[in-house]
Design a protein around this nucleic acid. Structure first.
Length: 263
DNA sequence: TTCCATGTTCCGCA
DNA sequence: TTGCGGAACATGGA
């Protein structure tokens, strides 16, 4: 689930449910999520802090704490946030629960535990340390920057777009969607794309991501013209009525239409 | 039972 | 030396 649009939806959700609230208590399960520091450091930083502000870089969500540090939430393949008041509303695999001073709870749920919870100095420091590229929707990104970042890659355009060190935010699903809507075959080499193709791909990417945020990054709410709800081998291509194919690129399931996206 | 999943990191190879 | 592709990671649903 969590690529840039999903994480942006989570950010807005946290902003509307839990901002300016103070953390009264913290419950955690499972050590696996605390890869950077120990779990104790995260709990210590959270307890008694107010949630002051939110930021997002690529797939990373940052929450500013009143102590000055930032909570980092990365959602891996299966994470999400849930705010609730009654125990009956608890999500099924909550791994970190903050009890807030208005009686609500903010839970980080991650079935597959591939995410990360940490405390960092700042979003900028973290992005630099992890060597993340510019966020796909930030104002530091542009058609020119996008073209430069991709032209330097010998990889397939699919892997280059998913490389967080080039552009932060695209994952498997929205990479396929961007390539589909731009009419570019996922196995083409990034460095072989023309200037026009790169520009078209950039425009398509920003349009896709913004639109996905608008519909809540919910596949069932995606426009019928999108690939997103048809990620299935043999599904009907919404563009030409042909057949959606499945292949594997860099170990990831890749869906595309060979007619709309010629090699 | 086996395969697969929207992410990241590590390792081997060219 | 560097960049790329595949496996591993942990869990559970189809």
């Amino acid at each position: 689930m969590p690529e840039l649009p999903d994480v942006e939806v989570f950010r807005k959700y946290l902003q509307s449910t839990s901002l300016k609230r103070r953390v009264r208590d913290v419950r955690t399960t499972r050590e696996e999520l605390y890869r950077d520091h120990g779990r104790d450091d995260v709990v210590k930083a959270l307890k008694g802090s107010r949630l002051e502000d939110t930021r997002r870089h690529g797939k990373n969500l940052f929450v500013k704490l009143s102590g000055g540090e930032w909570l980092l939430l990365h959602f891996g393949m299966s994470g999400f946030l849930k705010s609730y008041r009654k125990p009956a509303e608890e999500p099924p695999h909550q791994r970190l629960v903050m009890a807030l001073d208005d009686g609500s709870n903010l839970a980080y749920d991650s079935q597959r535990l591939l995410g990360t919870v940490s405390v960092v100095e700042s979003p900028e420091e973290y992005a630099k340390r992890k060597e993340l590229g510019p966020d796909a929707l930030s104002d530091r990104m542009s058609a020119e920057r996008f073209a430069e970042l991709l032209a330097g890659s010998r990889a397939t355009v699919k892997s280059a777009l998913m490389d967080q060190g080039r552009i932060a935010g695209l994952g498997n699903v929205y990479t396929d969607e961007t390539l589909f809507q731009a009419g570019i075959h996922p196995r083409r080499r990034a460095s072989e794309l023309s200037g026009e193709e790169l520009e078209e791909m950039y425009r398509t990417m920003t349009r896709v991501l913004r639109k996905a945020i608008d519909f809540g990054a919910e596949a069932s709410n995606a426009p019928r013209s999108w690939l997103l709800p048809r990620r299935e081998e043999g599904a009907e291509c919404p563009g030409c009525g042909g057949s959606i194919e499945r292949t594997t690129i860099s170990g990831r399931a890749t869906y595309f239409c060979a007619r709309c996206q010629p090699p």
